[in-house]
C-alpha cells in the first residue's frame, strides 16, 4: 500500500489551507451578514488546525494547544458581539445585506 501517502504535517496544513480558502470564498461572495460570520468562523478554525498540527510535531510542548484554546475564546466573544450588532442593525434598519447597510456612505 505504498500508494497512500503517510500522513505528515503537510497534509494537515493543506487541510487548514482548504478551510481558510472556503472561509475566504464565503466572506468575499456572501451578502448576508450572518453568512459572512460563518466564513470568519471557518477561517479561525483553519488557523486552529495549523496551531494544533504544529503542536503535535513538537513533542513535549503544549503551547500550540494553548494558543488554539485562546483562539476558541476569542471566537466565542467575537461571535456574540457580531451577532448582537447584526441583530441591532436588523432591528433598526430592517436590513441584513451588508451591501444595503450604507447609511454612513457619503
Amino acid at each position: 500500500m505504498t500508494l497512500l501517502l503517510a500522513i505528515g504535517l503537510n497534509e494537515y496544513l493543506v487541510v487548514g489551507a482548504a478551510l481558510f480558502c472556503a472561509g475566504l470564498v464565503a466572506v468575499l461572495s456572501r451578502r448576508n451578514a450572518v453568512a459572512i460570520l460563518i466564513g470568519i468562523e471557518l477561517m479561525l478554525n483553519a488557523a486552529n488546525v495549523n496551531l494544533v498540527a504544529f503542536d503535535h510535531w513538537r513533542p513535549g510542548q503544549i503551547q500550540g494547544q494553548l494558543f488554539a484554546l485562546f483562539v476558541l475564546v476569542i471566537a466565542a466573544a467575537e461571535a456574540a458581539v457580531a451577532l448582537a450588532l447584526i441583530l441591532n442593525v436588523f432591528d433598526t434598519s430592517d436590513r441584513i445585506d451588508v451591501d444595503e447597510i450604507d447609511t454612513l456612505k457619503g
Binding site: V52, Q65, A75, A79, A80
Partner: peptide, 20 residues
Amino acid sequence: ADFVAFSQIIVYVGGILVLL
C-alpha cells in the same frame, strides 16, 4: 489534542453554532 477536540465541540457546536 483531546482537550482541544472536546472544547471545539462544546464551544463551537454548543455555543457559537447555536448563536449563529
